[in-house]
Amino acid sequence: MDAAHELVFRARGISKVYRMGEVEVHALRGVDLDLRAGELVVLLGPSGSGKSTLLNILGGLDTPTSGHVWYHGKDLVDADDAQLTLFRREHIGFVFQFYNLIPSLTARENVAIVTEISTAPMKPEEALRLVGLGERLDHFPAQLSGGEQQRVAIARAIAKRPAVLLCDEPTGALDSGTGVRVLEAIETVNQDLGTTTIVITHNADIARMAHRVLHLADGRIAREHHNEAPIAARELRW
């Protein structure tokens, strides 16, 4: 990745303070960050280091207490709820630790629910094939394994061809073999569609597939390193 790639996110001095009852929690303390198109970035760090808060702010789910985040030059801090909704709808794909599929919809329909509100989506079947689930289109979440459910969630996230894919602990609830298959799907999306991808994990092994790794600690980016030669997801073991 180099400067030739377009700048997708530019964050400067973002801080986030939560009030938890009587206590103030400083989740982020002045984070600066640039993300370029097509990057696969892994955020590493212990619980409470601010990974999820950072991801939520980038994804338009949350707003910083101070600082600015520009997405393609537009400041997300100025956006209201409706604008953030539109931003998520058009540009962001989310994958979560607990999949968050709609239990009453089949795999295909869980993807369709997003493609129906997108402008130039791929077909749900195509997205599911991309994550290796072309055969289980009409299964309901309760009929799928955890890894399969997570791959449906990835298909759902990328079917609208988002510019950015944000994954919060995508393998956190899965065993290693299943986790690898999920990561392969994320890798495919990143490589084949060129989707800028951020993966949160506290599993350092996963960092080996990233172009760039950001270590968060105590609300700050403590360390950053570039992988000159990221390894393929299928070679990961933990």
């Binding site: 709820d81 998520r88 709808r89 962001i92 989310f94 968050n100 629910i113 509100i117 996230a157």
Partner: peptide
């Protein structure tokens, strides 16, 4: 609530 919040995250408006 979880299902609906997930949809909101995926870009569904409050109305939807």
């Amino acid at each position: 609530g979880r299902e609906l919040a997930s949809l909101r995250v995926l870009g569904f408006t409050r109305g939807e």
